[in-house]
């Protein structure tokens, strides 16, 4: 790609272009604020909401982050166990699939009864949504290890553990990263939905109130805030991927 092409497609430039389009389109087509408020209004609303917005952003970030880390660890754990112990896979995998097809709303009352209105309740929902794609991708990544390479390593006298660390895990890593990137977006959705089970701080709470009071401009502020949080988390993961998991096995 040429230098110019690269600059034009870099994220900040894209954001700028979208902002410019927003600035132009609203007066041009005389769009009613109910459908799309002017960007200036959205900015003013964000400034007005700033302290609450900041507190909400931080709180939702924490819920997402903790839930994601816990979900990722559990997901990788189960995925690995499933890959090596077929019996476990046969016994538990169907249960996981069944659990995943139950909408998270259905667990609402249970989560609140178990964990109350604590941050833990939101973390658990974020975890619950994140762990499944991680587990599935870990299982898929580990099952896809080239058997020829595995045989070669063991012929050199590598132990199971060595072969796991040196071959299986590295070759599964790109697939696991895909699972993690799916998981982080789901974690954010989980944290926001979790806040709808009753709380006073968080982007989800602000969003709920804005919807309830029909504050359309504020809804847009929160859409941008949620999008920003999601992009930051996803971007951080991509950065880690590019730096540490840059290889791609066949």
């Amino acid at each position: 790609m040429t230098m110019r092409g690269r600059i034009l497609t870099s994220p900040p430039v894209t954001v700028l272009l979208v902002a410019l389009a927003w600035l132009a389109v609203v007066p041009l087509f005389n769009i009613e604020p109910r459908y799309l408020p002017p960007l200036g209004d959205v900015y003013a609303e964000a400034v007005k909401l700033w302290p609450d917005l900041l507190a909400g952003f931080w709180r939702t970030f924490l819920e997402t982050f903790i839930g994601f880390i816990a979900g990722a660890l559990i997901g990788i754990g189960f995925g690995t166990a499933f890959a090596y112990v077929r019996l476990l896979e046969r016994a538990f995998f169907p249960i996981f699939v069944a659990l995943q097809s139950v909408p998270v709303i259905a667990f609402g009352a249970i989560v609140v009864i178990w964990f109350g209105n604590t941050i833990l309740a939101k973390v658990v929902i974020a975890l619950y949504l994140a762990f499944f794609p991680v587990a599935v991708n870990t299982l898929r990544g580990l099952s896809g290890v080239n058997p020829g390479r595995a045989a070669l390593l063991s012929s050199f006298g590598a132990s199971n553990w060595q072969s796991f660390l040196m071959l299986a895990l590295p070759s599964a890593a790109p697939v696991i990263m895909t699972g993690l990137k799916l998981g982080i977006s789901l974690s954010l959705a989980g944290a926001i939905v979790g806040e709808w089970f009753g709380d006073t701080v968080g982007l989800g709470v602000l969003l709920l109130q804005a919807l309830y009071f029909e504050q359309v401009t504020r809804v847009w502020v929160l859409i941008i805030a949620c999008g920003l949080l999601g992009a930051l988390l996803y971007g951080a993961l991509s950065l880690i991927e590019r730096r540490y998991v840059w290889w791609q096995f066949d």
């Binding site: 009864i113 939905v193 009753g198």
Partner: peptide, 18 residues
């Protein structure tokens, strides 16, 4: 004071003793 929300049924939570 525990706030409610669209995802929870306050009546069930009180009836269950939660």
């Amino acid at each position: 004071v525990n706030p409610g929300g669209p995802n929870i049924n306050a009546a069930t939570l009180v009836a269950s003793g939660s």
